[in-house]
Design a protein around this nucleic acid. Structure first.
Lengths: 181, 181, 181, 181
DNA sequence: CATGAATGAGCCTTCATTCAT
DNA sequence: AATGAATGAAGGCTCATTCAT
């Protein structure tokens, strides 16, 4: 059962994502978020103790951790694993809101312990797991190849080149990564 | 001839890089920069019309554009080109100040026309040039491989893994990129 | 017959006394009072039109008017009168909650017509009545002595000296006041 | 040499005393103080780190500690000592601003360590010193008499009775206190 | 050039109060 | 009676920017 209360909360988070994505976490005033969500400024502070708490909530949703976890859960291996991640990545960051948020969130690392931890997990723990799934073993070369994979994806979504479509990019990137090991 | 004027200006920029790197562009108050530079707050505004101008100045220095340009100027080709860029990248972003700044600067894209233009150049123009130098022709696959290269570098410097040293990472990454074409 | 309604009301007042005593009337937020009373914030406003009304209710109970009135009603004279008042005073303000409230309430004088009136009564009307009872006539000297009496009591309860117990203080104070006339 | 800077600071403090006296420390908004002082709101925070710091500054000036100290320094004894204090007290608190402030400041005790300490000194340390000067020894009775003295003074200034003038009140009060020992 | 006092806009946050349920 | 979500009005405070000295 979805409660009214949660709906409002989600509406505020959605609005925050939009506003944060455009203005950045620290230049975005709370009153803009409230207006976008169609609630009063005071209500934002009823659902979130302070702006920082809202920032964290938004930031956590902006990282691709959810995508990676869901692909890991599916027990995919080899190319399928990379395709799952790549497609999820593309889907998520096709949305300009998420795209903008991704950078802001990564830049948040120096300022929030929680976000720093999430990014660490993303860059260290998960890479090992994926390396095992894709290459059978987390060798140094495998881990480096995966960094090239993730970096390539990030480069693409941050600034999608007009002359290369998603599908083409993904296939080629996966080829590059796989052929190397 | 280096004038006194320029020395002070540079001192302010250095201080700004340090402070911006730690606090982010918008949370960093000018008075902290002034103090770090050992000058008065007013003086900062004598050298820079406003904070935005200082931000742009710092941001432009934070991107790897200078490294790429210097490698291009050297007329390197093939593996040598990638090694030049890779090594320059590592050298620059080994400094935690630049590392922090890189993220903040990229996140600035939505808010500064100048920075957006620089990033565009980095991601589009330069990629083509480098593709020609490295692979002989700017094919789609070549451009994708270079995005994997840059993305991989970025992943590394943003969060250097403790179990892979710079040299190893670089050699492997270049292998991965080169073998693909 | 004590009704449920009155019990809740009293619980709110008690909670308010505690919170007001600690934080002061204006820094004490209503939600703290509600929590202390174990009721919802909304309910406080069902029993009291607004915060001001609750403040007045608490403030009126914080002055020693009740003590003085009860002693006057007992038709005491001379030393007995002073003893009655003194003992009542000590009993009431031994409680740190009342002690804190006394000061806050007196400071309220400039801001509440009702409290100002109560304090005026305390300092002017009652003094005359007591002067008659204690000294037989409300001479100037008698009224001054009584001010010394009340002031002495206030000094004691506001900051009870560790080396003088209540009983000793009271006896000596009464002696001082009585011997003067 | 009085510097411009100190003049502005003093102007702010004066304005604060006026406003605090009328509204109480916590109901008085800083912008009223700024307007009263003829400066911008921001400037108040240039001279005082925060409102609390301004409150403390004002509160410390509101207690009669300065008067008592100056009388102690004059090496007065007996009745002269009491006259000095009494007259200083009357002079200071004849000003309605100081009169209002006195209560607000005393009520501040629970909320500021510094003020609590000042009040403690006033009520404990100084009383002993004065007892020695006035009565030759700090006997229990002497200390109680002095509390009656201070309490009497406080009662008078807090609500000056229209039918007793300062001089009369003071003489009688001193008589009462002195005759007792 | 250099300083730092001064300004004012704007932000985060609190809180009394209302009201639908 | 009772709850707690919702509102809106301030308030404290920060900070970019200006300017007299």
């Amino acid at each position: 059962m979805i409660r009214e209360k949660d709906i409002v909360r989600e509406r505020i988070i959605s609005a925050a994502m939009k506003i944060f994505s455009k203005h950045g976490f620290f230049k975005a005033p709370v009153h803009l978020i409230a207006r976008e969500a169609g609630v009063s400024k005071g209500l934002v502070f009823w659902y979130f103790r302070n702006k920082q708490e809202l920032i964290i909530e938004v930031a956590k949703r902006s990282l691709p951790l959810d995508i990676i976890d869901s692909c890991i859960e599916k027990s995919l291996v080899g190319r399928n694993m990379l395709e799952c991640i790549g497609r999820g990545y593309m889907n998520k960051y096709r949305d300009p809101v998420h795209r903008g948020l991704l950078l802001h969130t990564m830049a948040l690392e120096t300022q929030s312990w929680e976000i720093a931890e999430d990014i660490r997990r993303l860059c260290e723990e998960k890479i090992v797991v994926i390396a095992e799934r894709v290459f059978g073993k987390p060798s140094t070369k495998a881990k480096i190849a995966l960094r090239a994979f993730f970096g390539g994806l990030m480069c693409y979504v941050l600034r999608p080149p007009k002359d290369i479509d998603e599908q083409t990019f993904l296939e080629n990137l996966i080829d590059i990564v796989l052929v190397s090991n």
